[in-house]
Write a protein that binds this DNA or RNA. Structure first.
Length: 556
RNA sequence: GCCUCCGUAGCUCAGUGGAUAGAGCGUCUGCCUCCGGAGCAGAAGGCCGUAGGUUCGAUUCCUAUCGGGGGCACCA
């Protein structure tokens, strides 16, 4: 019996009562999945529901009356030990120890599948994130989106969605000229031009191109430019891709902006927007009337000089996603693109989509380091690669996925570098490693998982009940995290599982304690049963860490 | 000026309208002859920025206000 089962049973009970005329409610008022939560206080049972307070008023009765009708039916469910009505109308449910303990076996048997849920079944999602300009290495500002975006992708997939991770390559426009000009300048020992890219990596790219083609140095700037422009960004993009691979972040599609322009997709997009009726011409430019859908000003698609704006590329890109069958287009953007949200949403609406259902823009707060923000142009870059070297992928990904995307993060590099146990990833990984170590010890004493030696009812210590309840909540946490695009909920829940595990470990022995004379007593049923619980915890920790892209070590 | 995010323990931060608001770090006190002490048990520490409103019930939703971050291009 887990919260999902209870919730479904509860919905059924209420619906039956409505059908029987005991409760006067329209059928559609009964939620499909009434909320079933773990009460904060153990005095309030194993699980509690507030459905009587939710529906009581609409049914024209006070919540306690409502609860009086429902509670006896809950009492009849298999695995329910007792039901109490408390306070203003909470229904508190206590399970049989056996019903709770059975979960240990369920989890072990489900293995990697435990935690998967149907929260997002049927969703076809395009998830665009990072999309850093290929004019420099990935730095700390991109790092958060890489970790979060990938974790969101994993969450959605675990919740049944079909997800495509996509990286939009800004390989079109003046910035590549500037980038190439910077490379050219470095190649000839000059300072980079005004507004160029001053970083050390530009030297390295210049050297790499020179190594490929020593003759390029003798060409004039105009002769060399096309080659520089192409190779410089390709080399940089390859570096970005390699860094992301190292970070365990993988994209399904690398989408080129310039291809949109070359293929005529931009012109076609403009035609389609025109056909939708939200465009006009003014002052020699071609505009999209985004103010029809909540933007604070209209946006130019074609400038008076006849060239498309960056936004025109965005329009074509959006339509490409739509044409490729993605119903949901999720954009993960940094706070510096905050001003973009309204126009992107309006763009979706101008293209005939629903701006609430078909597009979702997640804005993340920037990371600051010691109070100083980072800027590529200012040259004070902390590269992702350096961060990986300092901290390792696990610590970095975990600490980034541990906070909501809209929460500002401040990073103290010294603290991060210290790799001390104030980083919660060690706490969670340690619990996993410890459970594996305990399993090895149990193996050595022949305490292995055997179905006939598993007695769910023997897992009745308070620490076991607590641990089991945390494990039971895992699938709904994953589902809620997917729905809320909030990987940090998984991280926080893993921390609470780790805590419950450590407490259990302190209170309940898996292998029997040696006697005074050092001999080992024969294991009892409870020892075998605890082995199942231990391994179930291992499984949930591993599954949860996997969702965050963090490893689950056997030993530390 | 307009838009947006954030104000919760000394610090960094969780908290999907519910019961006594949580965790880590830091401080203090205990716990390994026994499965990993990177752990556990306990203590101290809060007018949830402020003021109204909605509700049976608000840290959570709405309005106002104060304080802090970010954004407001025919750039990309």
């Amino acid at each position: 019996m887990n919260p999902e089962n209870l919730s479904a049973a509860l919905a059924h009970i209420v619906r039956s009562a409505v059908d029987a005329g005991d409760i006067n409610l329209p059928a559609e008022a009964v939620p499909e999945a009434p909320r079933v939560e773990r009460p904060k206080s153990r005095d309030h049972g194993d699980w509690a529901t507030n459905i009587a307070m939710q529906l009581g008023k609409r049914a024209g009765m006070n919540p306690r009356q409502f609860a009086e009708i429902v509670a006896p039916k809950i009492q009849e469910l298999d695995g329910v030990a007792s039901v109490e009505i408390a306070g203003p109308g909470f229904i508190n449910i206590t399970l049989d120890a056996a019903a709770a303990g059975e979960l240990a076996r369920t989890i072990v048997e489900a293995g990697e599948a435990y935690g998967r849920n149907d929260q997002a079944v049927g969703d076809v999602v395009n998830l665009e994130f990072v999309s850093a300009n290929p004019t420099g290495p990935l730095h700390i500002g991109h790092t958060r989106w890489a970790a979060l975006g990938d974790a969101i992708s994993r969450l959605l997939r675990a919740s049944g969605a079909s997800v495509t991770n996509e990286y939009y390559i800004n390989d079109y426009g003046a910035q590549l000229e500037t980038f190439a000009a910077s490379v050219w300048a470095r190649m000839h020992g000059q300072d980079v031009p005004e507004g160029g890219y001053p970083g050390q990596y530009v030297h390295e790219i210049a050297d790499a191109i020179l190594a490929e083609d020593p003759t390029i140095k003798d060409k004039t700037y105009d002769e060399a430019l096309p080659q520089l422009r192409t190779r410089a960004y390709q080399i940089q993009l390859e570096d970005i891709r390699a860094t992301l691979d190292e970070f365990e972040v993988h994209f399904d599609v690398w989408f080129s902006e310039s291809k949109l322009h070359e293929d005529g997709a931009v012109e076609q997009a403009l035609e389609r927007l025109k056909a939708q009726g939200h465009t006009y011409e003014q002052d020699g430019a071609f505009w999209l009337r985004t103010t029809d859908f909540g933007d604070d000003k209209d946006r130019v698609l074609i400038k008076a000089d006849g060239k498309p704006t960056y936004f025109a590329g965005d329009a074509a890109y959006y339509l490409s996603k739509k044409d490729r069958g993605f119903e949901q287009k999720i954009y993960l953007l940094g706070a510096d693109h905050h001003g973009y949200v309204n126009r992107l949403r309006a763009l979706a609406a101008c293209a005939g989509d629903d701006m609430d259902d078909n597009i979702e823009v997640l804005i993340g707060q920037l990371i600051s380091v010691n109070g100083a923000r980072l800027s590529k142009r200012a040259g004070n870059i902390i590269e992702l690669r350096d961060l990986i070297d300092w901290l390792g992928v696990d610590a970095l990904r975990y600490s980034l996925a541990r906070y909501p995307n809209d929460s500002p993060m401040e990073i103290d590099p010294d603290l991060l570098r210290s790799q001390t146990n104030d980083n919660p990833v060690f706490y969670v990984q340690y619990a996993h490693a410890r459970s594996r170590s305990a399993a090895r010890t149990a193996d050595a004493q022949g305490i292995v998982r055997e179905v006939e030696k598993f007695d769910a009812a023997s897992l009745n210590h308070p620490a076991e009940e607590e641990l089991l309840s945390k494990l039971a909540q895992f699938p709904s946490v994953v589902g809620a995290a997917a729905k809320g695009r909030a990987p940090h909920r998984v991280a926080r829940h893993l921390e609470s599982i780790a805590a419950a595990y450590h407490q259990w470990y302190g209170a309940c022995r898996i292998v029997p304690a040696p006697a005074q004379d050092g001999t080992k007593p024969a294991p009892e049923t409870v020892n075998y049963s605890r082995r199942w619980l231990n391994d179930a915890t291992t499984q949930v920790l591993a599954n949860g860490l996997g969702l965050l892209g963090v490893s689950a070590p056997e030993k530390m």
